[in-house]
């Protein structure tokens, strides 16, 4: 059920507007980068030390290599070095006319693999999908996040906003309680960031590896003792749409490093 019934949805929106200190104004938006220790920041800044760059290198290789004999490589359609995709990551999720719904960057890559390259789409969180996504997103590093003003995305964005504001899980918390109302405070050992999706896929020290934005969101949902949404679910794309609008105009940082 990708869209809740209108009545349920209206109730969600009402509940959403009633709670909390409210949204963060564009001028006050800060990347999680700013709250990290000096050492972790230095690792992200230095491409020779940033472990995410290894995945980017893998992604560059996958970009150039045909996924199957006779099938085109990504490079055959988009150009050898990937710079043709500059700015793309900064505007996803975007409307996909073929499937008549919003899709995020990793779903776009999976769709290209399947429909245009005749290959099996790489699984969520697989090294190949993370590497390709990191390679594509790197092309937008430094570009301000700018969600498209496409009215077809409004509904997903509003759904994402309601999900962000709604309480869930055994602890009855919401994303907004932590990331709008209590960012900058300490949740036990962790500094609560504003929760912007600027650096994904990114290298998380706690994961000792690269992970997608959806993996991060699943971590937060598990922390709330909520049942996480499935990888690739419409709920996650809706949340990503709202997160992008909420983060603009912060710059893309992929591949970021986080604690």
């Amino acid at each position: 059920m990708p869209h809740p019934a209108p009545a349920v949805f209206a109730a969600l929106l009402l509940a959403a507007s009633a709670a909390g200190a409210g949204e963060i104004a564009p001028a006050d938006r800060r990347s999680g980068f700013d709250q990290m220790g000096a050492e972790t920041r230095a690792i992200q800044r230095d491409d020779t030390a940033n472990p995410g760059m290894l995945a980017v290198a893998d992604g560059a290789e996958l970009w150039a290599r045909p996924p199957a004999a006779g099938a085109p490589a990504c490079a055959d359609c988009h150009g050898a070095d990937g710079t043709g995709l500059r700015g793309v990551a900064a505007r996803y999720p975007a409307w996909d006319a073929r499937s008549d719904r919003p899709i995020d960057l990793q779903d776009r890559i999976r769709q290209c693999r399947r429909d245009r390259q005749g290959a099996v789409p790489p699984a969520y969180e697989s090294p190949d999908l993370l590497a390709l996504t990191a390679f594509v997103a790197l092309q937008s590093r430094g570009e301000p996040i700018r969600p498209p003003a496409d009215p077809r995305l409004d509904r997903g964005r509003a759904e994402g906003r309601a999900l962000f504001a709604g309480r869930m899980g055994q602890l009855g918390l919401s994303c907004a309680i932590c990331h709008d109302d209590n960012w900058g405070r300490r949740l036990g050992a962790a500094a609560i960031p504003q929760g912007h999706p600027t650096g994904y896929p990114l290298y998380r020290l706690e994961w000792q590896g690269l992970g997608s934005l959806q993996r991060r969101l699943r971590n937060c949902m598990t922390g709330m003792r909520a049942e996480p949404f499935a990888y690739g679910s419409p709920e996650f794309v809706a949340l990503e749409l709202y997160l992008a609008a909420r983060a603009a105009p912060l710059p893309v940082e992929t591949p970021a490093v986080r604690p």
């Binding site: 309480r167 869930m168 899980g169 055994q170 009855g172 309680i177 598990t222 909520a226 049942e227 996480p228």
Partner: peptide
């Protein structure tokens, strides 16, 4: 924002491992 430690009321999408029991 303090969780209700002994209540099952008004909860949504509780994770499988924590369903139907208080904190």
């Amino acid at each position: 924002i303090m969780p209700s430690y002994y209540s099952l009321e008004g909860l949504a999408r509780v994770g499988r491992a924590w369903r139907d029991r208080p904190i």
